[in-house]
Amino acid sequence: MCVMRAVVVREFGGPEALELAEVARPEPGAGGVRVRVEAAGVNPVDAVTRAGVLAGAGLMARREVTGIGWDVAGVVDAVGPGVTGFAPGQRVIGLRDRLDVDLGTYADFAVLDAAALAPVPDGLAPHEAATLPLNGLTALQALDLLDLPAGATLLVTGAAGAVGGFAVELAALRGLRVVALAGQGDEALVRGFGAEWFVPRDVPDPAAAVRELVPGGVDGAVDAALLGVRALGAVRGRGAFVAVAGGSEPVGLRGIRVANVWITADGPALAHLARLAADGRLSLRVADTLPLARAAEAHERLAKGGLRGRLVLTP
Rank of each mutant, 00 (worst) to 15 (best):
V75C: 05
G185M: 03
E300K: 06
N260P: 00
G164K: 06
V53G: 01
G228D: 14
V120Q: 10
V214G: 14
G31T: 01
R25M: 14
L276Y: 13
P315F: 00
A207M: 12
L292Y: 00
G85H: 12
V210Q: 09
W197M: 08
G194N: 09
A243F: 05
L226F: 15
E249A: 15
R238P: 02
A167M: 12
L253G: 12
D46L: 11
L155F: 14
G237S: 11
V312M: 00
V72N: 01
G220H: 07
V235L: 12
V229P: 14
G56A: 06
D113Q: 09
P88E: 08
V83H: 05
V120L: 15
D71A: 09
E19P: 02
A295M: 01
R281V: 03
L284A: 02
A172T: 13
L226A: 14
L307Q: 02
V312S: 01
V48H: 03
G183A: 10
E196S: 06
R294L: 11
L253C: 05
A110N: 02
A107D: 11
V48W: 11
R5W: 04
E249P: 13
F193N: 08
E16R: 07
V79N: 00
E64T: 04
P121R: 02
G41N: 01
E11H: 11
V83N: 02
A167Y: 13
V242M: 03
T157Q: 14
L213Q: 15
G255T: 00
G56V: 05
G217H: 13
V190R: 02
A152Y: 15
E169I: 11
R5V: 07
G309I: 01
E22Y: 10
A295D: 05
L145S: 10
P206Q: 09
G267H: 08
V53R: 06
V79Y: 00
A182V: 14
A293R: 12
V258Q: 02
L232Q: 11
G56W: 08
A182I: 10
F198K: 05
T131D: 06
A293L: 08
D288P: 02
D144G: 12
T105E: 05
L284H: 05
R50G: 04
L99I: 01
A115S: 15
P204E: 13
P215Q: 06
